[in-house]
Amino acid sequence: MVWINSVIQGVMLGGLYALFAAGLSLMFGVMRFVNIAHGDFIVVGAYLIVTFIVSWGLHPAIGVAMVLLLVACAGYLNQRVLLNRVLGKDILPPILVTFGMSIIIQNGLLELYSADSQKLQTGWLETTSLQVADKLAIGLLPALMFLTALGVIAMLQFIFYRTPLGRMLRATSDDPEIVPLMGGRNAHTFALATGLASLVVGIAGIWLAMKTNFDPAAGPARLLFAFEAVIIGGLGNIWGTLLGGIILGVAQTIGAQIDAGVQILAGHLAFLLVLVIRPTGLFPKVSH
């Protein structure tokens, strides 16, 4: 029963990893851009929600809305003002610029909030759980987290395949040179993609704050989890990313069940195993 429990906890955790991964996957999908500071942006989201709700005492709903609005706008502006200038065939400039951002964010957070770890207390949300069987309970918070992941991915899927914005994002991803001939503005489209990705980053940050302890240096590990979920799931497949997140989450909780010290290592090893067996991921996009 403990193993079943581990698997279920892992699936829930996988939801969080899918949230981490969705933004990274979206940015890569649209502009072949990998943001090294992705995890740090998630951590910024976590600090923002704690600041708004705990330090400023804002109503949680207002706090959440403010975080999402703030990170989405910041993401748009960051892409428009800065990142668009380093996009191109050369992969080094974006890696370096976002590496620089990562260092700046981590040390900025350290300066502002100290190295103490934080967590957003959620009271009854955290303590309520559904007892399915003996030794098998599903917490309300993890369940909500998983549902959020499902919702976010369904939303992204809808935006991508059912809206004019999604159409433009896909077209720009296919052939950015030709899109301006159809009246598309790549700088704006890329910034919208990052804005949308940042919105998801904000959601991920809020859940990070509720789910675990975090500190200014928590970003890189989140980047790696996000990356692993994307690669395990297969590039360009957003539902695959969810499955990738779940596989990573389950590998970690099973690892933790074996020995608390190998939780993270077990996740990395699962990723490397997939890389050995199927470097294109388990569920790569099939052209329809």
């Binding site: 296919d174 030709i178 159809m182 009246g183």
Partner: peptide, 19 residues
């Protein structure tokens, strides 16, 4: 031609009307 390969025929046409 440079059609967008992940877009359907109709979506390709609609992109043209984006302006």
């Amino acid at each position: 031609r440079r059609l967008f390969r992940s877009l359907s025929v109709e979506e390709n046409l609609l992109i043209g009307a984006a302006g």
